[in-house]
Write a protein that binds this DNA or RNA. Structure first.
Lengths: 191, 191
DNA sequence: GTCTATAAAGTGATAGAC
DNA sequence: GTCTATCACTTTATAGAC
């Protein structure tokens, strides 16, 4: 049972980080959610920042597995990106990393910010690879810059979360994704 | 001089809201930045929320004027949207409204959330109008859904801010914008 | 109209009992 | 390894002097 409190702390932190971000998440709220005392947290972790780091590392592991599952599957580049963008998401809750990227206290913490930064640069690299392969295969126009299209896709996803949250309606997210895919198909050669 | 303290409070709040969001901005920080005492704030406003509302209303006025200036100018639909997307921005500071859309305390306040929500629905409406006019003029393909392309453009902008902030580098923002414009031009008929 | 003093509650962290 | 008690500090807000 030695690892049970630790795990519960990390899982509670992951949920609270997702809903309220880092700055607005108090150790007290984490302890209440995990159902453990304060001493337990300071035994397993150095403090709030250290606990958040552990939670974000778990998020990164899961995210990489999910993205790889979407992008490494069979089909064309458009199929892969469509699969990635259409994956079921908790849209109104937002992106676990996107929310933290905007958090001033995360930005002020090198340890925390690095995790966010690396996640997004890895994602854009993976998307770029898929688009470049599509160009090599003659599926996508070689005229476009693969890096910028990859950035546009990652941005549409992140911005879709923002628009949906502003409208309190997932429709805005779905529309943005649809728009990106419509335009992506416009640079695909009919086969 | 009766309005001087009030104005200074609103302006300081606008800056702090932009940098730290709503939850993380304390009345104390606002007072320090404005250089006025606490009684002054509670004389002019009911409290933190009321002051934030006044600051966000000012932001909304400015935003509408700027967007109208970009989109109501001369040129084609692609020209207008290119002008809007290429407007000089303080990218690493992010979007005044996008940041607040993600703030849990803003979402919990009907008065504050409404301002964010109305801003984004108005923006998407204006972008949709421009794209629809481009389709009527035969400049843009009638095949695409104007509403979804408008959502994609708004999302690319918001997401571009997120990516740039994550990378601490405006290049990610510029790439995303470039990608969106490349694809937009792909549905424009050469003239 | 603006100030300072103060309050009650919450913050992140430490101490020490068990 | 986990608990509760406590700390110094900050939060949003009110009271009352000037």
């Amino acid at each position: 049972m030695t690892e049970n409190s630790r795990t519960r702390l990390v899982e509670s932190t992951r949920e609270l980080l997702w809903d309220r971000g880092y700055s607005a998440t108090s150790p007290r709220a984490i302890l209440d959610a995990a159902g453990v005392g304060q001493g337990s947290m300071y035994h397993h972790f150095h403090g709030k920042e250290d606990l958040a780091r552990a939670a974000m590392q778990r998020n990164a592991e899961e995210m990489r597995i999910q993205v790889d599952a979407d992008l490494a599957g069979p089909g064309t580049a458009v199929d892969k990106i469509t699969g990635y963008l259409h994956r079921e998401r908790d849209v109104l809750r937002g992106c676990r990393f996107g929310k933290l990227a905007q958090d001033a206290e995360v930005e002020a913490s090198a340890a925390l910010h690095t995790l966010v930064s690396e996640m997004f640069s890895w994602l854009q690299m993976r998307l770029t690879e898929v688009i470049e392969q599509g160009q090599i295969d003659g599926e996508l126009s070689a005229e476009v810059n693969a890096t910028s299209v990859a950035a546009m896709i990652a941005a549409t996803l992140q911005g879709g979360y923002v628009l949906a949250r502003a409208a309190q309606d997932t429709a805005a997210f779905d529309l943005a994704i649809e728009g990106a895919l419509e335009l992506l198909r416009a640079i695909a050669t009919p086969r």
